[in-house]
Write a protein that binds this DNA or RNA. Structure first.
Lengths: 230, 230
DNA sequence: CGCTAGCTTGAGCCTACTCAACACGGGTGG
DNA sequence: CCACCCGTGTTGAGTAGGCTCAAGCTAGCG
């Protein structure tokens, strides 16, 4: 497998982030947000009480990472802008952290107690929290289906479809989407080796299922060929 | 892979279940429960509105199953007594169902609207619901870690450890635990072939990491040997 | 210019899948 | 009772897919 050691970046402290004007507050929850900006590879963790805080990715990409025995990294959950996640409550014993996958990832933090209090007083907010958790569950289940896939090429295919659908807000796919992560990150996300990721992508390209512009930009040509049976 | 087609059992309708005396009502939620008993392989689905109901396994084992192109079954989430799950909100397009893994699996159903109403009025119940969802999330994340494991033997090892810890309530492991599922089910749960599951178990036995009594009863001898690096 | 990080490609090996055969136990029906 | 079947589990032989190791290639940057 990869064995891609978690790269420790320059350790300047995360700096407070000024929310851009395009991000308008939408819900009662947003009043609680504290947005912070992280460098690539930097660990995302609030300064106040570690456990149970809610987070939302505002920009960039984050990943919940576990490090296995042997130094292999696994990205358990990949978080794109708009995705919520719960910090601190890691899978049991496994050493698990959340880190920024791309430079300048901005993450909003919602302190646990304040969320709890808001949920207790505001039924709408409570309902929204339940929707957030069900979105998390759906992501994880889809990831399980991808990981259970038979071959590497099918894993990559499903991954690309899922990413296209998750990235599609913003720029519609005239020229395809930009993969927001390196081959190494994809490998750690799909439990493959980097070489296999690269080979599968070139195979899909030669098959005519996708088109690659540079290394990061992907345009999906044949959706059916990427689906579970290709 | 397995290709173990979902076996269709005799289709008598699920019959109402009389809760045994040992199950005392513990929470406000339990007042909403309707317990039903299912035969092995039978699909678990409430007669009233399909989507969004809460469930809890009372006895037996249930599994959230997806069927891939090619007929392969994958058990996305394995549910033991005490585990909650949310019905209906399947992973997107994939045809997904919940079915009883062992004969006589009893499942309590909590109708969606009533749970919602209870959550809106009772902060304690709302908090408990949040705990249930975080338990679901933890299960799924651990499953992702297992599926991302390098070799089949490590997958099986982690699976056995996890099962031992989840089954440990009740009979402590004097003579080990009883695996509540067939090799086929384990294969579909870990995305392996049945033969590989069988081979890995015998390998672990010969290595002295586990002891097998018959086919279903497993006693874990060397916990460390089963952990991620063996 | 050299360095590094990211990406690709090749060669060889090893693991897990496939196909196949067989053992075993519990049904069911003659 | 035995014969038979079916579901389950194990084991073997051969194959194919992915990992490892290794080399080379590009782009960005000091």
């Amino acid at each position: 497998m990869t064995g891609h050691k978690a790269s420790i970046p320059a350790d300047d402290t995360p700096r407070r982030y000024v929310p851009p004007g395009s991000e308008r507050p939408r819900r009662a929850l947003d009043a609680l947000a504290v947005v912070t900006c992280y460098r690539r590879g930097q660990e995302i963790r609030s300064r106040q009480g570690a456990a149970g805080n809610w987070y939302r990715v505002v920009a960039g990409v984050a990943g919940r990472c576990a490090v296995r025995a042997g130094g292999r990294r696994q990205i358990v959950d990949l978080l794109l802008p708009g995705d919520f996640f719960l910090g601190g409550t890691s899978p049991a014993d496994l050493h698990c952290s959340v880190e920024a996958v791309v430079e300048g990832t901005a993450v909003a933090c919602f302190p646990r107690e304040r969320v709890e209090r808001l949920a207790a007083s505001d039924p709408d907010a409570a309902h929204e929290i339940r929707c957030m958790t069900s979105a998390i569950t759906r992501r994880l289940e889809e990831q399980i289906l991808i990981l259970g896939g038979a071959t590497a090429t099918k894993k990559i295919g499903c991954f690309l479809l899922k990413m296209a659908e998750r990235c599609s807000e913003g720029e519609t796919d005239k020229n395809g989407m930009v993969l927001p992560m390196s081959r190494y990150d994809i490998a750690d996300y799909l439990a493959l080796s980097v070489e296999t990721v690269s080979r599968s992508l070139t195979e899909l390209k030669q098959r005519g299922a996708i088109a690659l512009v540079g290394t990061r930009r992907v345009r999906i040509v044949d959706h059916v060929a990427l689906d579970d049976e290709g």
